[in-house]
Design a protein around this nucleic acid. Structure first.
Lengths: 336, 336
DNA sequence: CTCGACTATGTAAACGTTTACACAGTCAAA
DNA sequence: TTTGACTGTGTAAACGTTTACATAGTCGAG
């Protein structure tokens, strides 16, 4: 039914080996033969079967990308960066989400492991121990936003602590002393580190911790919206809010508008991630800049490198720096 | 090196056929044997090799998702819906973007075609003719937002015309007569249909076409932002703007704020797509509601169905209805 | 007791490639 | 003329499964 290498070989009066050589540009083939093979292949509309090839070469030319979720601009940016870089390296991208659920991660890992040459795993809530028991030991892996404590994998982490600390320090510089935080998901590495950065900045400014100012959140717009309602019921209310990510900040901004609270005059606000849409809100949203698509791209690069170097690859833990994207919502003038 | 079915068979003192039967829950296997095989498999940490299986069964258990781009919330929603439904049906998702570039689509199609059981292609700018020459004739395909004119593929299209017409009619009901449109990308099916809907609504209201009110755009925030600058220089300026998608509307809103134009009092505004974040802007953004994630989900469902029914599958062209998401930016009161 | 049906299992081919190895031919150097 | 290197090509095994077919054993009906 389907046209195979044998059909081409037979029709072109050569062996399958020769056809294979032609299609892989490998080994010596006489020009006349090559021409004949290519012509025959075109005639028969032959394309090499990827599965057969994979079985033989033990390569799949695919990379798995396991995300905790696929919601909002943050993840689309990650995927975008990864896709772009994967294409450059001639790899396919197998995308899947785990919903941060242990079982789903396990099955995803197992079921993906056979069909990819390497794996990028973003799992801020589930510890990496799950990996060692569910993955073949020699499969290259890059961890994104994972708890990494001497795990034998490459890893990429955003400088959550530094970024959060920096932005809170900036809010302090605006003269605010009572600064609330809307926290991220519980037991989430990114969330915890950002909280730590927040506390550290306050402490260094000589401001004691105040549990009432640490409001629960879930990294979602809705949770930011709801958190603001709680925050505004405080007496006295804080002068500024640090939202643990931009989605939360956006929800918060929406609630503040609705309650008639002027931002930044009556309440300063800052987020984290600097998703592209942040600059289109009014006031434009101050945030901690992370080049999210670069994060995806870098992960692919590291993974491809690991795949090629195979056994003698040196694992690295990289921390990606952040910078401040100062806009109107914290009280800064909008950059021209 | 890698542990295969043979290793398990040997250790469990059975044939590979039996091991296969156990792992596929197929055919009769004595309970005692089954137990022994499973135990041995666990002991050796055996997992069936997907590639070998694929070669034998001629199934890959993967679905390709080819998108024009991966940017912003629209596409993350498509991917999210597709991923979720694919997982339910035990399919993997191979995601790739084509940047709307003909060459990239061609290579993507060719290179994907061997490794997926079916393909979802979103290509609002490139005609489907490209498919027939680059795809095996029997590969199930679902087209998203493609020009479909008796092409032999399943297709899903948003009711762009109806949605656009409806929202413009709504703007008319608010009493606005001069309504501008910020158009989408050129030669893009969705964009053209939305423009057609806009014109149709105006015509039926007895308002003649006015080329000056049809502003170029690119479905991006930036293009919306820039379009507004042009719109505000019109004499007299229009009373309302219909942006061809939400990204454009968001950019437009940002520009209007910056120029000090009150929305909706001085300028009413509406978008298209109703991306989740639309309701968090202020004013909340009126839009044409499309359940984007359902679009992705539905595409997968149709494709899975086509895969199973194989040859005797009846192709369908489905038009997905839209509804109006009326919020503040058009002048409606915010729903509670 | 015989036969057929059924259960449990094994044998081996098939899937579509790649590639190690073998082989024949050509050509230049010795 | 022999030798060795090199070029161009073919043979066949290997990759890890599934599955059609074969076989052996058990059991109940006749």
């Amino acid at each position: 039914m389907r046209v195979t290498i044998k059909d081409v070989a037979q029709k072109a009066r050569v062996s399958t080996a020769t056809v294979s050589r032609v299609f892989n540009n490998i080994g010596p083939v006489e020009e006349e033969t090559r021409r004949r093979v290519l012509e025959t292949a075109k005639e028969l509309r032959y394309t090499p079967n990827a599965v057969g090839r994979s079985l033989s070469t033990k390569r799949t030319d695919a990379i798995g990308l396991l995300l905790p979720d696929i919601y909002g601009e943050f993840f689309s940016e990650v995927i975008r960066g990864a896709d772009q870089t994967a294409q450059q390296h001639r790899y396919h991208l197998l995308v899947s989400s785990s919903h941060n659920h242990r079982d789903e991660i396990e099955t995803a890992l197992r079921v993906m492991s056979g069909r990819v040459d390497g794996l990028i795993i973003m799992s801020p809530q589930i510890d990496a121990e799950i990996l060692t028991t569910n993955l073949p030991t020699n499969l290259p892996v890059v961890l994104l936003s994972c708890f990494v404590e001497d795990v034998p994998y490459d890893s990429l982490n955003i400088d959550n602590f530094g970024g959060a600390k920096g932005i809170v320090q900036h809010l302090l510089q605006h003269g605010h002393r009572r600064i609330a935080i809307i926290k991220g998901v519980e037991n989430n590495l990114d969330a915890e580190e950002r909280l730590r950065g927040y506390r550290s900045a306050l402490q260094e400014a000589g401001i004691g911790p105040d549990a009432a100012l640490e409001i629960a959140g879930k990294f979602s717009e809705t949770s930011g919206y709801e958190a603001v309602k709680k925050i505004l019921s405080l007496h006295p209310p804080p002068a500024a809010i640090f939202a643990s990510n931009d989605a939360t900040a956006i929800g918060a901004l929406s609630a503040l508008h609705e309650m008639g609270v002027a931002v930044p005059q009556e309440m300063a606000l800052a987020g984290f991630d600097d998703i592209p849409i942040a600059q289109f809100f009014s006031p434009t949203l101050t945030s901690v800049r992370v080049s999210i698509s670069d994060l995806g791209a870098l992960a692919i690069q590291k993974l491809v490198q690991a795949i090629h170097e195979k056994s003698n690859h040196v694992k690295q833990h990289v921390v990606i720096p952040t910078s401040l994207a100062l806009r109107e919502s914290c009280g800064c003038p909008k950059p021209h």
